[in-house]
Design a protein around this nucleic acid. Structure first.
Length: 768
DNA sequence: CTAGGGTTAGAA
DNA sequence: TTCTAACCCTAG
């Protein structure tokens, strides 16, 4: 850090002493302004301001800090002379004092002693040694001039981070600001604390004041705060309320989440609290925890709504709240059966004093205390509390998780109606009749954050951050050469944000994508766009199927594909364009356009083979085509989807494709397509061993490319496949692997990746 | 009606 | 106890 600071200051590490000197002893800046640079007035003022005993605790810390830092610089004082003069001259081009100043201040024999004295005498009687003190008190006056000379402000601030004052560690670390008050405010200066406002600070206040109270120093402050709080937020603000109520007897409590984790201690429920809770539930109903919490009739010891809920669940298991899952199977069964009995009866009743309710309670009691659960409250106890009958439930709808199908429908709905959630809800086909529009919106936000954001809506801060992080990662990945393994989703928290599938499908399909988050070259995406036509067609279910975090596995192309291609030129040709409607199209336009030559080694197999495009049609793999695509089909059928053109009355079969479609309408049974030499991925009968080891005998790139029309192989010619030296090529159609992404198939650095997102490979226009 | 923030249920 | 997602509330 320090070297960096030095760098920021423009000083070489060697000049560091000079830097220190600048911040402490009077540097040139003040010189021009004041005829007498040694004039102590300024310094004194500062010292006075800082000296007060109130701030002494912190000052003391910073002093000790400074001392450490200064002692070396002191030793270096004699050496400073040289550096300081140049710096002075730099900072102050016109300083008559520059020379003198350094002389005056830095001369160890003469100047230091007098100067020190002046400073320390009036202000700081306490300092152990004069020399240290002088260094401490001097800096501030000179830092200000420093600012005026446009010195970076960072260094002094950063330095403070080196050694966190011990006391500060145990409490909130003050904000890092340029305000000098940042630290001192946190130092237990009650007045300063009390002046802060705002919810957050109030929270902190409660904490700080609590400590103050404990120390006897800020007790008044604590009370004041409590009052303020109580006034501002009567019974609300569970957290702050919680902090204030018994703040004095819970000194270790901290407001920071992290600190809370460590310091929060068990807070047992008292009988009175429990009673209040139960009475509250009987009054407001199950689920109205906040109301209960805020009801002035009840007192809770620093409870949150969640605490209330949990307590209630403990006391009255089965009463409207699911009991905790038991890890042991037997228990689980026990619990569930019990729950169903209880809740099914209780939840259906809303009237108190119901005999059946009593029965329910008795049922509960019959279960209770079997397992040492002493918290359950039986009917008798409840009656004692004045609670009769069962509890009513708040009319909150029952929580109902979204299924994958729901998600798919939601996506479809969104494609159809955009963000008109009520329309989505009303669409009977989508089956959201039991949901509220906002439910759909919320779910969509969670499930498809990227699309949600792209549609112009605001994500929850957390999701947003996650999304950003993800994009970062993605970009990084894109930059790095990527092994197929990389493209697997990590089962981390990010997994919730599907690896760009929604993004890809949505953005590319709507052609609104300017996103760089996609690994696939834009042109390539567009190619697929056109080839698969469907604007916003259902990619949803595909995506939803990828719900499993690992479901988006990349396609790994077998090396042997090259060999196979070499050995089977004709099939190769057929395969490469099979099932890629756009391919035929492209081919017809420009025979070579399908190559994606990103470098000399990426060779379009088509070029290599130099085959007539007439072979290019379809369904080499048509064995799968007989299956109609189903929107909810599994991967296998999806595979088939890919392998044949989805809609027999295809939306827009390209001329080439249609024209050639009659040429090869073959089945896999056709010997020509059942070459024994195919890679296992596509053609199972190829031994993987040979596939891996085989070397292909491809002519040198120069030869292969010699006859090419340069124009026909532009950089991003949107070819769905690419040829990689000695590795093979990827063809979306032919080598699609159910499961997802067609990932980069080479692991060589600097190679351009071809990644096909699942959505792009999917058939559009299902059912419609 | 929607956006956005708040509250609650339930799992971890 | 914490965290996430489903659900709720309400201003605009």
């Amino acid at each position: 850090m320090e070297p960096r600071i030095a760098t920021l200051l423009g000083d070489s590490p060697l000049e560091r002493p000079a830097t220190d000197a600048l911040s402490r002893p009077p540097p040139p800046p003040p010189a021009p302004r004041k005829p007498h640079p040694v004039e102590p007035t300024t310094a004194n003022d500062h010292v006075r301001a800082n000296a007060p005993s109130t701030a002494s605790s912190r000052l003391g810390q910073s002093q000790s800090q400074s001392r450490h830092q200064h002692s070396p610089s002191q030793e270096a004082v004699p050496k400073r002379q040289k550096p300081s003069a140049p710096i002075a001259s730099v900072l102050n081009t016109v300083t008559p004092f520059s020379g003198r100043l350094s002389d005056l201040l830095l001369d160890p024999s003469q100047q230091q002693a007098p100067k020190r004295k002046r400073v320390e005498e009036p202000n700081d009687p306490l300092p152990p040694t004069g020399s240290e003190n002088s260094l401490l008190t001097l800096p501030k006056p000179h830092q200000q001039p420093k600012k005026s000379t446009k010195r970076p402000r960072i260094p002094p601030l950063l330095q403070g981070l080196h050694q966190v004052p011990p006391q500060a560690q145990s409490r909130l670390f003050p904000p890092i600001t340029s305000e000098s008050g940042a630290f001192s405010r946190d130092l237990g200066d009650g007045a300063a604390l009390r002046t802060t406002t705002g919810a957050e600070k109030r929270k902190e206040l409660g904490d700080d004041t609590a400590r103050n109270a404990a120390s006897g120093d800020g007790a008044a402050g604590a009370q004041e705060d409590a009052q303020i709080e109580a006034q501002g937020k009567p019974a609300s603000a569970s957290t702050s309320d919680k902090e204030n109520r018994t703040a004095t007897d819970r000194s270790p409590t901290s407001t920071t989440p992290t600190a809370t984790k460590e310091l929060r201690k068990r807070n047992k429920w008292s009988e009175q609290e429990t009673k209040d809770l139960l009475v509250g539930v009987s009054r407001f109903g199950i689920g109205s925890w906040k109301k209960i919490l805020q009801c002035p009739d009840f007192t809770f010891n620093q409870r949150t709504a969640v605490d209330l809920k949990d307590r209630f669940r403990t006391c009255c298991p089965g009463e409207g709240l699911k009991a905790r899952k038991s890890k042991r199977k037997g228990d689980a069964h026990d619990d569930s059966s019990q729950n169903t009995t209880v809740s099914s009866t209780t939840t259906s009743m809303s009237s108190n004093q119901d005999p059946v309710a009593q029965e329910t309670l008795d049922t509960i009691s019959s279960f209770r205390k079997n397992r040492g659960d002493t918290h359950r409250k039986g009917p008798a106890e409840l009656r004692e509390m004045g609670i009769h009958g069962s509890f009513t439930r708040s009319n909150r709808r029952e929580r109902r998780p979204f299924t994958e199908q729901d998600d798919a429908s939601l996506l479809r709905g969104f494609e159809k109606y955009a963000s008109s959630w009520h329309l989505i809800r009303d669409d009977k086909d989508l089956g959201f009749s039991t949901r509220q529009p906002t439910d759909l919106r919320d779910r969509f936000r969670i499930r498809y954050p990227e699309m949600f954001a792209k549609a112009g809506y605001k994500l929850k801060p957390k999701d947003e951050a996650m999304l950003k992080e993800k994009e970062k990662g993605k970009n990084k990945e894109a930059a790095d050469s990527q092994t197929s393994a990389n493209s697997n989703n990590s089962p981390s928290s990010l997994s919730r944000v599907k690896a760009s599938a929604p993004d890809t499908s949505f953005s590319s399909l709507t052609s609104t994508s300017t996103s760089n988050s996609n690994l696939m070259p834009l042109a390539l995406r567009e190619s697929f766009l056109t080839s698969f036509a469907g604007p916003l067609d259902d990619f949803g279910d595909l995506d939803s199927e990828a719900d499993g975090d690992h479901s988006r596995s990349p396609i790994i192309l077998n090396r042997n594909i090259f060999e196979w291609a070499d050995a089977n030129p004709s099939q190769m040709a057929a395969v490469t364009t099979t099932n890629l409607p756009s391919m035929g199209h492209l081919a017809s336009d420009a025979p070579l356009s399908i190559s994606n030559v990103t470098d000399a080694t990426h060779i379009n197999p088509m070029i290599t083979l130099n085959l007539p495009m007439a072979l290019l049609n379809s369904n080499v793999l048509s064995s799968a085509t007989s299956q109609p695509s189903s929107s909810h089909a599994g991967p296998s059928s999806r595979l088939s989807d890919l392998y044949h053109h989805p809609n027999p009355p295809a939306p827009a079969p390209t001329p080439a494709t249609t024209g050639l479609s009659t040429v090869t309408t073959k089945h896999t049974t056709d010997p020509i397509f059942r070459t024994p030499n195919l890679p296992t991925i596509v053609f199972p009968h190829v031994p993987a061993s040979s596939a891996r080891s085989a070397m292909h005998n491809l002519p040198p790139p120069a030869d292969l490319l010699s006859g090419l029309d340069p124009d026909a192989r532009p950089e991003a010619q949107t070819a769905p496949f690419m040829f990689d030296d000695a590795l093979g090529f990827a063809n979306a159609g032919a080598f699609y692997s159910p499961g997802a992404t067609l990932a980069p198939m080479n692991s060589m650095p600097g190679r351009e990746m071809l990644t096909l997102e699942r959505g792009l490979l999917q058939e559009p226009g299902r059912g419609g």
